[in-house]
């Protein structure tokens, strides 16, 4: 028995060193050499200043920007230190009310647009940090953004197309549009 206890303790310590220190540190080293951009958060840099990440969404509610997925993180939306979904059940009246409020906000920002709103634009994402919206959700907002920014619809259409990714390898996942990158590009276009 004493021998088994000694075996157990030393085995745990040795495996802790191997799997808990050597493995993650070697992985970090190799990842930093092979994929430094991804390993450090896929940051979008302006000069040497990070202005965001390709992978983490930001909150937008100005009509001149494309809006992303609603975020249920607290206290503020898109809180990078508290990722979470709403966890509202499918029959929770609060889910219905939140969707209704979001539709109202979208319609107030874009009077006259009475098209049905794409589902992803009025439902909270799983992480609260979803960087992307569906192409349908982007299409829904193009006329508004073009009007507020006094840009041609086709110009904005083109920009959306540029930041749209299809299914990965043609098969996996869903087509999507990166909201932060699209909005940064819009600001650049407007600044010209």
């Amino acid at each position: 028995m004493a021998r088994l206890i000694r075996n157990a303790v030393t085995m745990l310590l040795v495996l802790t060193v191997i799997t808990g220190l050597v493995y993650p540190l070697v992985a970090t080293g190799v990842a930093q050499v092979l994929f430094p951009h991804q390993a450090n958060g896929s940051l979008i840099m302006h000069g040497d200043k990070p202005v965001g990440s390709e992978l983490i969404g930001q909150s937008f509610d100005d009509p001149k920007y494309f809006w992303g997925r609603p975020s249920a993180t607290s206290p503020q939306p898109y809180n990078g230190t508290a990722s979470n979904g709403s966890n509202q059940g499918p029959t929770n009246p609060a889910l219905h009310d939140a969707a209704k409020q979001r539709i109202d906000a979208l319609r107030t920002a874009d009077p006259g647009n009475n098209a049905p709103v794409p589902a992803d634009l009025v439902t909270a994402s799983g992480s609260g940090l979803d960087p992307e919206i569906s192409p349908a959700a982007a299409q829904y907002q193009i006329a508004r953004v073009a009007r507020v920014r006094k840009l041609g619809v086709e110009q904005v259409q083109q920009l959306v197309a540029q930041y749209t990714q299809g299914r990965q390898l043609g098969l996996l996942g869903e087509p999507r549009v990166n909201v932060l990158q699209l909005n940064l590009a819009l600001d650049q276009l407007s600044a010209k």
Binding site: R69, G85, D120, G126, I133, P135, G173
Partner: peptide
């Protein structure tokens, strides 16, 4: 242009199938 369906709590890149 969209996966549609019940998107509450889901990420756009995964949609319904994934």
């Amino acid at each position: 242009l969209q996966s549609g369906g019940n998107m509450e709590g889901k990420e756009t890149r995964f949609g319904i199938a994934a």
